[in-house]
Amino acid sequence: MLDTLQRIGAFTLDTLSSLGRASLFLVQVIAGIKSTLLRPRLLLRELYSVGVLSLLIIIFSAIFVGMVLSLLGYVTLVDFGAESSLGVLVSLSLIRELGPVLSALLFSGRAGSALTAEIGLMKATEQLASMEMMAVDPIHRIVTPRFLAGCISLPLLSVIFMSLGIYAGYLVGSVWLGVDEGSFWSQMQSKVEFGYDVINGVIKSMVFAFVVTWIAVFQGYNAMPTSEGVSRATTNSVVYSALAVLALDFILTAIMFVK
């Protein structure tokens, strides 16, 4: 009994201390933003490896998710004779929920884990320490450009996910299942509001981008400098990102879309 209490206490303290370390780390990362912006070439390279290289998985997933959504939505709506609302169903699900969440999860698997592994390996092979000894701050030189690139890339990827998914849904719904094209688009346009649905969806994905990239770079920087430590950090990065995204999604949805 006492043992359990002790373990709970130790766990709480551990969690608090790593949260504290992660926050201090974030402050240092943000302090490097100015020097990163002065060297856009570094940022550009990271935008390539974080953003452009994630494009393929985002495009394919968006297309399939949009098609499935349209298919399932049709099957359900046609029973009520409401298949003209298919466009609304597909677009609202993608914009409010699936676009931001799925692209964040895919992003953490594709780019977040790569960031963690890269930074963790640089730590394990003493590259970060050697930079410090060359009087170069490894957080500003290595971490900040990656962090910024993540924060910029994911919202862009999310928007691409949303619009591609909707078009894929349109192809399945209108071209294959025969929902009237006019009502598909017009219903969608009258129900989806840019200033409310789209903006809130983009805000969601900005929050996810911030959190997922933060977790990824922190796990990498904080990894034990061994091969086992790096692999564990990579796993943690994906698991924590997924949990954080889903939990935050609940909170954000409650704030944004529940009246």
């Binding site: 640089m122 092979t125 590259q127 050697s130």
Partner: peptide, 9 residues
Amino acid sequence: LFQSGALLT
């Protein structure tokens, strides 16, 4: 000089 060299890969 680091043991592993620590060159930027």
